[in-house]
Each structure stands twice: as structure tokens, then as C-alpha cells.
Write a protein that binds this DNA or RNA. Structure first.
Lengths: 250, 250
DNA sequence: ATGCTATTTATTGTATACACCAAATCCAGC
DNA sequence: GCTGGATTTGGTGTATACAATAAATAGCAT
């Protein structure tokens, strides 16, 4: 069964709905959707749902105890964020990023995240630094305890929080999307046991930012991202059907 | 009448559907959705649908001859792009950008579009330059013939095409979203008769790019965007109800 | 036996019906 | 006449039923 049903459903009470006609629907329904969205999104980012995995509407609907209507909404959102691919009459599946897409994503991060560093440095305070250090710490812990997928997500969270501190909500949202996709890319192309982000890096970065040294932070972020990208092994494991040509085509 | 109903509706045949039961549904349905999406999106960008305008699902469903289901899908997509605002039990309305959002958007454009210029300059060829000049020309024509809303959209198209020429699809998509929102911002905060983008600017920019002078183009784009932003009158015409506090509160 | 076609099946696409909530309206009471 | 609450109404949220299509399978002919 590989990795089905969410191992750590802190939220997402799982299959209520059906016969819970008495007490309304517990949550306001809207929050429930958000929770489900997050559950699926996290599962993808943490590679519990692997690239290429089919996401059947019925199945999801049953697991989460809502009807297909709500599931479709969530799948569409995920599709717009390019975490899932929606093929016309074939349904949804977890996106398998191509090498080109990976390059685009990291180039974009290079441009945006680095460009944001001066702003972040300017708005960095005690509280923010403390929060970031806490995040970096949790990330390190996850890594040490062998929970690589969780660490990947925490690392993404760190980068997103950083972007949010720039004060530009729009760019922060872009970074959020880029980080999600990066997690997917790491999950596919990353070497096992070698997480892209060394959490030590993150601590160093906080230092520069706390010192208000935006330029230094920018340069560091640039190297940091380059290091992540360089750690990837960009071999497109084409499991389609081109083997014959390659093997016999001679 | 300003400029109502699409002056050049190349696509979006408008209200077929209903009695077209004979030949299947003409288009593959998927393309139809895309067409409707574009029709609404364009209408918003061209200010035929003004900020604050309510978008009732029934009404849209009837106009386009599909059911609410399809409309909802489209509205959600527009909401994710922040062109429409979806309030929980109140339905959809065209987003009224705040001053803060406007600042974020233009800061983001400053960072991304300027950062893209060197890449664009590097990949600029004869054909691309010719295409861009053609676009600039059409924009100028629209402006001269008084079709300001159309000109706004064409201007956005120009910036988007430029970003696409960078070769980074992800960043190009971001620019697309930023340009849509910019059009909305211009529609709200722009002075009538003074379009943000002087089309002459665009021609100059093409020149620098064609000469392969990325840095020059970058600096020019920066000034260009600053000029647009500066041309806005950022008065939030608050038509809410806070007058009482302000007037008597002292 | 193999290749082609027809049927079946599994799954998505779409519409519609119903439930539910919020606002507008109307009526009663002060 | 104005305020407060109950009722009506308009519109969204959700589920379910049905239609359509592509893949899988079985059957038939060569």
C-alpha cells in the first residue's frame, strides 16, 4: 500500500460528513475545504503522494467525506498551482516536473528571493528573527530524526515565511508557489539523504538579516539556492516507452 | 457609452449554447470554458466590468448558456488570480484593488520585469522585435482612436509577451497575473486620458533590447514602471461608512 | 494465433435539485 | 414615526444523478 492515507492528520478529522446530519457539519465547511486542500497539498509536498500518482475524485471524496464537487474545486486549485496535472478526460495526477520546469522554478527563485533580501533585512526585528530560528531548529530536528519529507516541507515553510517578512504579499505568494514546486522537484530529482537546504545555511542567513546586511544576505541566498539546484541529479527517468528505440534503434 | 461590448471580439462568440443542441455543443466544451474565461477576464481588464461589480452566477450562466457549475469554476480561477473577490456567502464581485495591493503589484513588477530584461535582450531576434513593434503599433492606434480600455489591455499584452520572450514560463505567468491586476489598478486609480504606458516608451524599449543592451533596457523598464505608478492618483475613494467617526469623532 | 472491432467498464464532465445562509422587507410595538 | 424582530426572498454551497468518453476486454473473422 506504499504510503496511502495521511499518517499524521492533526487536522482533517477524516470521514465525518455522511451521517453527521445532526450537528451541522462541524466546521463551517469552508474551513473544512481549506483543511482538505492543505492535507492534499502537504501530502504532495512531503512526497507521500508521489509524482504521477493518480488522484481519483471518487476516492478522495470518500476519504474526506465530502462529495466530488468539493474535491474538484480543490483539485482545480492545486492544478493552478501546478502541483497536480489535470488531463482533460483522464483526471488528476500529481505533477511530475520536467527538467525545464525545474530550471525555470529555480531561476525564478533566484530572481525573486534574492531580490527580496534587502527588504527583509530592513524589516527584520527581534521577534521575527526568533521565529525564524525556531523554524530552522524544527527543520534540523526533523532532518536529524530521518523525516526527510517533513524537513523538505519545513524548509519550504522557512523560505515562505522569509518572503512574507518582506511585506510584499504578492511576491510572498509567488515564493510560496515556487517553494511548493521546489519541494516536488526535490522529491523527484533530489538524492536521498541529501536534503537541498542545509539548515545550517538558514541559521547563517538569519544572522545576516538580523544584522541588517541585506546585500550579504542576498549573496548568501543566491549561493544557497544555487547549492540546492546543484545538488539535484537532473536525469529525467523516462518511464514511458522510448526504451525500444534506444535499445534496438541502433 | 464609452466603449462597451467588446469592440473586437475575435473569440467568444457570445450567447450561443442554448439552442445549439444539434451539433453537439460546437466546441469541445473545454475550449468553450477557456473562451468564457477570457471573455470575463478581458471585460474586467478593459473595465467594461468595473471594480465592485457583482458577478451573479445565474446571470453569467444564462448569458453564456452554460450552467452554474461551469461558471463557478471560472469564477474560482479568476479569484485565484485576484481579479474577482469571492466573499463566502455573498458571491463574486470584481476586485477593487487597495492602495497597498497596488504598491505590492508595482514593486513586484519592478523586481521581476526589470530582472528579466537582460535575459530578454539576450534572446531577442528579428522576428521577436518585429512582433513587439506590431503590438506597440496596435496599442498606439487604439490609444489614438480613444479606446483607452483596449489600449490598457494591449499594453498589458505587450509586457506579458516581453516576459515570455525571457524563456522562463513561470516568471512569464507571474508577469501575466501582475499585468492583469495592473490593468485593474489603472482602471481604478488612473487619470482618464492619461494612460500609464506611453507607447513611445515601448518602442524605445524594443530598441534597447534589439541592440542587446540588457542593462539599458532594465534601467528603462524601471523608469517606465515608476512613471506608470507615479501617474496614479492613489486616493482610496472609501465609499464605506467610516465618515461618522472621522467627521464627529474628534 | 493474431489483429480488428464491438461491448463493457471505469471515471470524468455537466446540469439540476435542494439546503442553507444573509439580507431585504414587512409588521408589530413603543 | 421609529426601532426591533419575524418572514420572505434572493443567491450561494453541496450533493447527486445523468451523460459522455476513453480505456480495457472480449469476441469474431481472417
Amino acid at each position: 500500500m506504499s504510503d496511502a492515507q495521511a499518517p499524521e492528520n492533526r487536522r482533517a478529522s477524516a470521514k465525518v460528513g455522511k451521517e453527521s446530519k445532526e450537528g451541522k457539519d462541524s466546521k463551517e465547511g469552508d474551513e473544512r475545504h481549506e483543511a482538505i486542500y492543505r492535507a492534499v497539498s502537504d501530502a504532495i509536498v512531503e512526497q507521500r503522494l508521489k509524482p504521477g500518482a493518480r488522484l481519483r475524485e471518487d476516492a478522495l471524496a470518500e476519504v474526506f467525506g465530502i462529495s466530488r464537487t468539493g474535491i474538484r474545486k480543490i483539485l482545480q486549485r492545486l492544478a493552478l498551482e501546478q502541483l497536480v496535472t489535470l488531463t482533460p478526460r483522464r483526471g488528476a495526477s500529481v505533477t511530475r516536473p520536467t527538467a525545464d520546469e525545474a530550471k525555470d522554478v529555480f531561476d525564478a527563485r533566484q530572481l525573486i528571493e534574492c531580490g527580496l533580501m534587502p527588504d527583509v533585512a530592513r524589516r527584520m526585528g527581534e521577534k521575527e528573527a526568533a521565529e525564524l530560528r525556531e523554524m530552522a531548529k524544527r527543520e534540523r530536528q526533523a532532518l536529524r530524526s530521518g523525516q526527510q519529507s517533513v524537513a523538505i516541507r519545513l524548509s519550504a515553510d522557512f523560505h515562505v515565511r522569509l518572503a512574507q517578512l518582506s511585506g510584499n504579499a504578492t511576491l510572498a505568494e509567488f515564493v510560496e508557489r515556487l517553494c511548493s514546486r521546489s519541494s516536488l522537484i526535490l522529491a523527484v530529482y533530489g538524492h536521498r539523504g541529501h536534503l537541498g537546504c542545509e539548515s545550517h545555511d538558514h541559521d547563517d542567513l538569519i544572522g545576516y538579516l538580523e544584522a541588517g546586511n541585506g546585500e550579504r544576505a542576498k549573496a548568501f541566498m543566491s549561493r544557497h539556492l544555487k547549492a540546492i539546484e546543484a545538488s539535484l541529479s537532473m536525469v529525467e527517468e523516462e518511464e514511458n516507452v522510448p526504451d525500444l528505440q534506444q535499445i534496438f534503434g541502433g
